[in-house]
Amino acid sequence: MEYILLSHGSGGKNSQRLLKFIYNCLGDIVINHSEDSGIVTITQDKLAITTDSYVIEPIFFPGGDIGKLAICGTLNDLAMVGGIPKYLTLSLMIEENFSFGDLKKILTSIKEEAEKAEIRIIAGDTKVVSKSKLDKIFINTAGYGIIEYSQNINSHNAQPGDAVIVTGDIGDHGAAIMAVRNDFESDLISDCASVVPLIKNLLDESINIHTLRDPTRGGLASILNEIAISSSVDIELEEVKIPIKDAVNGICDILGIDPLYMACEGRAVIICPENESEKTLKILRKTDTGKNAEKIGKVIDKSENPRLYLKTFIGSRRILPLLSREQTPRIC
């Protein structure tokens, strides 16, 4: 059998076959798979719980696929509150006629990322829907992580004087996706990755992280605007310090979009006291995913009208506004 049929979601024999296929691909990262609910024992006081749905076109892109994106995205959301991921749930919504070959690739990515992060899948679901009711495959996850650390990490906690640090180059994911969508043959690769190891290192070393966010949809400028608003502070970034690959800048120029608003899928923005910024950078740069970490700005003052500013190449200052829609590439 090459393609998924509606009957694979019918509850009958074909459904059993599809489930068996999925379990085979995922192997022992799935636990409790014969029951209607997964049962786990948790003794800690504080749990982090997150859920997200993943829809992306194209589902395979340079540097990853929708499976890797779903796992890393969920892990990163947990890490952003200092949660160390333990369990995930996984729901697949699949369009009739989707190929088993592609499904296998996606499941293999899921397995790889889950193994790397040492997490287990405790519950799951599969639905098959008729053609054109959805586009290829959607994935929904929920993630459960344990909060073992005492740092009070949240969006309201950015303090005047704090340093703003980013763990790597900005906009790689957005640029790689844009390149594929526009039929550009390019070397761009998505930064899609788990930032859990980076964050765990910082927490282990007792870095006093005030605020932590992953700049996914809306990119760096959007999440820093959100932090500014939540913490009632002004934030200033320095254009020369923001790490952006030439190729990413290039494709942004061509398409008329701004890399500061482009999605990253393997980066985190860390706001911590200035006197811990050097140590933070040192810890981050030890790991491959954090080797281009950079201090890109600072929290300036408390503000009733919170703004994100950019100090440009010429030393001038302008506002980086919160834009109301996702950027669409210019054509002419």
Binding site: L310, K311, T312, F313, I314, G315, S316, R317, R318
Partner: peptide
């Protein structure tokens, strides 16, 4: 002129 901050400068 706007993007690089010349207007504000």
């Amino acid at each position: 002129i706007l993007k690089y901050g010349f207007r504000n400068y």
